[in-house]
Amino acid sequence: MVYWISIILMGIGIYGLLTQKNLFKQLISLAIIDTAVNVFIIAAGYVEGGKAPIYTKALPSFLKGAFVDPLPQALVLTAIVIGVGVLALGAALLVRVKEKHKNLDVENMKGVGE
């Protein structure tokens, strides 16, 4: 089920990328695609009825269906940070683009030759 959500989110992200004129909105739709992928990764690691893979006093030992798959969570941690990094870079670039080309709308940006 969660797969469906992530895929639809991706579809929205792509739609955003295709139609948005403003560059910042395109960056946001890129972020949407990133989050969609992260959701997908988490969904790939879900075990029915599993709990968070942390050993505590209440849950000291390994049971067959007890824990959710920890590896995707580790991967998603990295993926999120990568998403943040890319977003930060994009934002910084857009500040400069706004300065240089006077506005962020794709159609009428000044100084963008062939």
Partner: peptide, 27 residues
């Protein structure tokens, strides 16, 4: 105790090193 951290920092710590570099490059 937190298996995710064991993966992040111990078993696959090379990923995290890469991860740190991404953030470092972004900054």
């Amino acid at each position: 105790a937190n298996v995710v951290t064991s993966i992040v920092v111990n078993y696959r710590s090379f990923d995290t090193l890469g991860e740190v570099t991404v953030l470092f490059t972004a900054a």
